[in-house]
């Protein structure tokens, strides 16, 4: 299953959904071979539940998911001072994706057949 698109999903959209609906939304999109970048954090319990639900949908075309939490630093400028805020993104990819860190701060996502 080759990923067909990368989609960035806003925290606003995700917060409008109940937890179970959010899980279903994520998985239905990843099952359509999309690579999702979520503007949200999930705690470990929620991530494990997402993994469990993904495996419950297992078949020969959908082999699970790959997860990667990405921390980013956002800088805001105002007249008086600069502020730096840490934020997290959650990458959810189809199970055939190989996510690895390369040198020089590069996150590589390779998609296998």
């Amino acid at each position: 299953m080759q990923a067909q698109a990368i989609e960035f999903v806003s925290s606003n959209l995700l917060q409008q959904m109940e937890f179970e609906d959010r899980i279903e939304f994520i998985l239905s999109n990843v099952m359509e071979s999309k690579l999702l970048v979520l503007e949200t954090e999930m705690n470990p319990n929620e991530r494990l539940y997402l993994m469990q639900k993904a495996l419950e949908k297992y078949d020969e075309d959908f082999i699970g998911i790959q997860l990667k939490e990405i921390s980013i630093k956002l800088r805001t400028n105002s007249l008086l001072r600069h502020r730096e805020v840490e934020a997290s993104l959650l990458l959810v990819a189809p199970g055939n994706a190989e996510i690895s860190h390369k040198d020089h701060g590069i996150l590589s996502i390779a998609l296998h057949e």
């Binding site: 993994m51 020969e60 199970g95």
Partner: peptide, 25 residues
């Protein structure tokens, strides 16, 4: 524990495709 299990990995390890699919399930 794994978040994804690919039956093709078992084929590479020497199992038949049928055995690999069953093992993955």
């Amino acid at each position: 524990i794994a978040s994804a299990i690919d039956y093709k990995d078992f084929v590479q390890a020497g199992l038949s495709e049928e055995e690999a699919i069953q093992r993955a399930k």
